[in-house]
Amino acid sequence: MPHMQESLLIGVLALQGAFIEHRQAVERLGARSLEIRFKEQLQHIDGLIIPGGESTCIDKLSREIAGELYSEITKLGASGKLPIYGTCMGTIFLAKEIEGANQTRLNLMDITVKRNAYGPQKASFEADLDISAISMNASEDSHPFPGIFLRAPSIVHAKENVQVLAEFDGLPVMARQNNLFVTTFHPEVTDDLRIHKYFLDQVCTSKNANEMASVTTFQYEVSTSKS
């Protein structure tokens, strides 16, 4: 559905962190992007990416300058209207529970996360991940995804309504709950666009599915018949 992808406008939360890399990734896929620093900017976007960064810094900014931005994201995320993709720190923000920390969160996704789960930077790593969700469309997409984990959190618990899309060491590293999507690793620092493509094609498009059920169902059938 490339024609739908071209029209998408993806907001990237730009308070701190690797937001430019996400903008570049979605733009390389033909979508447009917008840096989000104020709540008014959320009005016209088709999806939101919460990038990697430092959660204590964003926590501080969210309480003192960007508070309304956060309550607006929570409202839109909870209503199912706004597709949201959280990377690394974004996973922490979307989680309902953060082990051992009482910091700001959007409180949206039924997962429990643990910050810095793998230890300090010397334990940060890259690993090949087998992700069938991004490999189903074409045979050239079936190679492993280069997962880059930087002082990454882990998802220590996910409720049954959360769909686990990839695991590492027995714990989820990519998961989805309707319009909410997370990876604890960083596809935006690689040249591999398959995760962003999944977000645009599968998560952002299902927003439209709620609004235009019959049309999207038809398109879904067309796209699956090709695979």
């Binding site: 730009a14 962190g17 810094c57 280069p146 880059i148 930087l150 620092v189 690689t190």
Partner: peptide, 15 residues
């Protein structure tokens, strides 16, 4: 790896 070493500072941007 280079990606892992260069990636950490990328997360500190804007900070």
């Amino acid at each position: 790896t280079q990606a892992v070493k260069r990636g950490l500072p990328q997360m500190l941007k804007g900070g």
